[in-house]
Computed example of a mutant assay.
Amino acid sequence: MPEPQPLGAVALHPHEDVILARAVRTCAGNPSQWDTWTTSGQYPYLRHRSGEGTVEQHPSEDVDTWDGAESRLLTHWNDGTGGGRIDLAGFLVLAGLRLAPGTAAG
């Protein structure tokens, strides 16, 4: 299987729904992670640990649904820091994601 590539700039991926309508931080320490929902209702799970960031798409935030055919890895990268803490703004830049205008991140 080929190594997943970062999504890159949002403009390069107009076919992907990369605009987040809601983001809820579920761990402020190590790893940094968020439950998010796109403007079209998709559920991406964001996680950063040991310098590695991942964006996984799943049917819902219910982990019991994560092993099905609807789950997939959207992107994975290593920022070289070895760190586990990152703020949402920094994560979104590295992942090629963005918040919808007026979206508050919790």
Results as ranks from 00 to 15, higher is better:
residue 20 L to H: 04
residue 18 V to W: 15
residue 42 Q to D: 15
residue 72 R to Q: 14
residue 78 N to P: 03
residue 95 A to L: 02
residue 33 Q to C: 13
residue 105 A to Y: 08
residue 31 P to D: 11
residue 9 A to Y: 00
residue 13 H to A: 15
residue 3 E to N: 13
residue 10 V to H: 12
residue 8 G to F: 07
residue 84 G to Q: 10
residue 101 P to S: 10
residue 49 R to G: 06
residue 29 G to F: 07
residue 74 L to S: 04
residue 32 S to K: 05
residue 75 T to C: 15
residue 5 Q to P: 04
residue 10 V to G: 00
residue 49 R to K: 15
residue 38 T to P: 05
residue 63 V to Y: 13
residue 83 G to N: 04
residue 18 V to T: 14
residue 8 G to R: 05
residue 48 H to T: 00
residue 40 S to V: 10
residue 11 A to E: 13
residue 7 L to E: 06
residue 69 A to E: 14
residue 20 L to T: 07
residue 59 P to E: 06
residue 26 T to M: 05
residue 4 P to S: 06
residue 61 E to I: 07
residue 69 A to S: 13
residue 25 R to C: 15
residue 61 E to N: 15
residue 76 H to Q: 15
residue 93 V to L: 15
residue 84 G to D: 08
residue 85 R to L: 02
residue 62 D to R: 10
residue 86 I to L: 13
residue 70 E to C: 09
residue 79 D to Y: 09
residue 27 C to V: 00
residue 38 T to K: 13
residue 86 I to K: 09
residue 59 P to G: 01
residue 81 T to G: 01
residue 8 G to T: 04
residue 61 E to T: 05
residue 66 W to R: 02
residue 88 L to Q: 02
residue 18 V to Y: 08
residue 48 H to E: 01
residue 81 T to Q: 03
residue 74 L to D: 05
residue 29 G to N: 13
residue 63 V to P: 14
residue 4 P to W: 04
residue 98 R to M: 10
residue 83 G to Y: 01
residue 95 A to C: 11
residue 22 R to A: 10
residue 38 T to I: 04
residue 2 P to A: 12
residue 52 E to F: 10
residue 104 A to L: 08
residue 16 E to C: 07
residue 87 D to N: 12
residue 25 R to K: 13
residue 12 L to A: 14
residue 71 S to K: 01
residue 43 Y to P: 02
residue 58 H to N: 08
residue 9 A to H: 12
residue 36 T to K: 02
residue 46 L to V: 08
residue 6 P to Y: 01
residue 8 G to L: 06
residue 4 P to F: 05
residue 39 T to R: 13
residue 71 S to C: 09
residue 94 L to R: 15
residue 18 V to E: 04
residue 100 A to C: 03
residue 19 I to K: 08
residue 106 G to C: 02
residue 26 T to G: 04
residue 103 T to I: 11
residue 69 A to M: 09
residue 25 R to V: 03
residue 34 W to D: 00
residue 93 V to C: 03
residue 58 H to F: 06
residue 89 A to L: 01
residue 13 H to S: 10
residue 61 E to Y: 07
residue 97 L to C: 02
residue 30 N to T: 12
residue 33 Q to V: 03
residue 17 D to L: 01
residue 31 P to C: 13
residue 106 G to T: 12
residue 89 A to H: 05
residue 86 I to A: 06
residue 55 V to A: 06
residue 46 L to C: 06
residue 73 L to Y: 04
residue 76 H to N: 09
residue 68 G to Y: 03
residue 99 L to E: 07
residue 91 F to R: 00
residue 74 L to I: 13
residue 4 P to M: 08
residue 55 V to W: 05
residue 84 G to A: 06
residue 60 S to G: 04
residue 76 H to M: 14
residue 23 A to T: 11
residue 19 I to H: 01
residue 59 P to T: 03
residue 2 P to W: 14
residue 104 A to G: 14
residue 68 G to A: 04
residue 97 L to M: 10
residue 39 T to A: 10
residue 71 S to D: 01
residue 16 E to G: 00
residue 15 H to Y: 11
